[in-house]
């Protein structure tokens, strides 16, 4: 609708009525798209279909044509591409400025962003100047009969699920926890429009300089079928855990304590401030089972806990528990796995 058609200000539709489309931010770093982006496109597709809206992917970066094409295969009707060297590597101020400009110009109804450090970093630079509602750490999404987004998030250590709504402001923004939704397989026959948008960021006006960036550990614990997770009880000696992980063909994961102590990379952290995982098998070694950790692994199919404290809360969240010294139990488990079955035959 053009300005002429909307008439004077008094009869102009409100921001809420004017807003349409579901946007999903596709987070790309040096050619790699974060898996949460594809998870959100799948979930965004469902919401867009419920609303009768288009699903729009927003890709920001440099040389991101492949990510734009994949976004269509992953469910987007349209893709907005901001492709410029100013966006590589990621910085909060250029991303925020570009995203904000597009939001102000086009007023999406919903905008979903992966709850990664990157997403949580720049989302406020969009939500604040547009006076949008921004819900953090969302784990469930729905729309009600009025087309309003119901963003649900755990509160107070996960004992409670709060539903957050945003009745009078648009867009309804959310940063969504990684690993909660499943990404659908890409459909290469899907068709959609790719639109290159003007870059509104000038390098001379940026506020930050990335001096150095080292991204080495790209371990994706979200996709692993089996995880061996280490906690404070390991005292920093991850040898037995690594051995057991190898015998089980599992990836290593960790509690916040193990990450905070510097024993293992933050990318492997499970829990409220880490990742949400749902493997077929989750083995917790020396993890006490604080609610903020349990929240990130509670959807695992089978949970095993090994801890020398019989009163550790983790046993309340485990299917099988061994009360004992992990430095003794884990090597024995690894030995019997290696001895009695070829690891190659250890099937799901």
């Amino acid at each position: 609708m053009t300005d002429a058609e909307t008439g004077d200000a008094e009869s102009a539709p409100s921001e809420v009525d004017r807003a349409s489309d579901v946007w999903v931010f596709v987070e790309e770093h040096a050619g790699d798209v974060m898996p949460v982006s594809w998870e959100l496109l799948t979930e965004g597709r469902r919401l867009a279909d419920d609303l009768g809206d288009d699903l729009v992917a927003l890709v920001i970066g440099e040389g991101v044509g492949d990510a734009a094409d994949e976004a269509i295969a992953r469910g987007a009707d349209r893709v907005l591409v901001a492709d410029d060297p100013v966006f590589e590597p990621y910085r909060a101020d250029p991303y925020g400025t570009q995203f904000r400009e597009l939001v102000e110009e086009r007023v999406p109804s919903i905008a979903l962003i992966g709850g990664t450090h990157t997403g949580r970093d720049f989302a406020g630079r969009v939500a604040v100047p547009t006076h949008a509602g921004l819900t953090a750490d969302v784990t469930e999404l729905d729309v009600d009969e009025d087309g309003q987004l119901l963003a649900r998030r755990p509160a107070f250590g996960g004992d409670v699920l709060a539903t957050i709504v945003c009745p009078e402001h648009r867009p309804q923004m959310a940063t969504v926890r990684a690993g909660v939704f499943e990404a659908a397989e890409p459909d290469l026959d899907r068709e959609g429009d790719v639109e290159r948008v003007d870059t509104v960021v000038d390098e001379a006006e940026t506020l930050t300089d990335v001096l150095e960036r080292n991204v080495s550990d790209t371990a994706d614990i979200i996709d692993a079928d089996r995880l061996v997770a280490v906690g404070g009880g390991t005292g920093g000696d991850l040898g037995p855990a690594a051995e057991l992980a190898e015998a089980l063909d599992a990836e290593l994961a960790a509690s916040r304590k193990a990450v905070d102590e510097g024993w293992i990379e933050g990318a492997r952290q499970v829990g409220q401030t880490g990742k949400t995982v749902r493997p077929e098998l989750y083995v917790a070694l020396g993890i006490s089972g604080a609610v903020q950790h349990v929240e990130g692994m509670n959807d695992s199919e089978v949970v095993v806990a090994i801890n020398d404290d019989p009163n550790a809360p983790i046993f309340e969240h485990a299917d099988y528990g061994i009360v004992g010294d992990l430095f003794e139990v884990a090597p024995r488990l690894a030995a019997s796995l290696e001895g009695e079955a070829d690891p190659e035959e250890v099937l799901q």
């Binding site: 409670v160 699920l161 539903t163 945003c166 509670n298 309340e316 485990a318 299917d319 139990v329 024995r332």
Partner: peptide, 27 residues
């Protein structure tokens, strides 16, 4: 812009909570 539309307590996931004595039993 945001309001709390509701709160619900989360039901705990049902786990076996079975204590096993040995690695062999666990396997």
């Amino acid at each position: 812009p945001t309001q709390v539309g509701g709160m619900e307590t989360v039901d705990p996931v049902d786990r076996e909570k079975e204590t096993v004595e040995t690695p062999a039993e666990l396997l």
